[in-house]
């Protein structure tokens, strides 16, 4: 696992912990909608925070493809490398 992936994971997890009303276990296999109970707008709001922290753009169609936190980490990593 690269340092960059770890860094992105840490950013995503800490942003999510701050956004969730209660503490929940987070891992790469966590389902963002089913396990965390976020609705579609809450997911987009959370991704907006990630965009600003990492200075990238995550287009909405990319968010639609994301199911787990692992998917999100991989997507963000690809975008970060492309940037």
């Amino acid at each position: 696992m690269s340092d960059q992936a770890n860094e992105i994971r840490e950013t995503i997890f800490s942003t999510l912990r701050a956004a969730l009303p209660q503490d929940r276990p987070l891992s790469d296999s966590t389902h963002i909608i089913e396990d965390l109970g976020l609705d579609s707008v809450a997911v987009m709001d959370f991704v907006m925070e990630i965009e600003d922290k990492l200075d990238i753009t995550v287009p909405l169609d990319k968010i639609a493809e994301v199911v787990t936190l692992g998917d999100l980490i991989a997507t963000v990593q690809r975008l970060k490398q492309a940037a």
Binding site: T57, L60, D61
Partner: peptide, 10 residues
Amino acid sequence: SRLGYAQVTR
């Protein structure tokens, strides 16, 4: 925005 093919940013 979903009906078209543009990249969408909020």
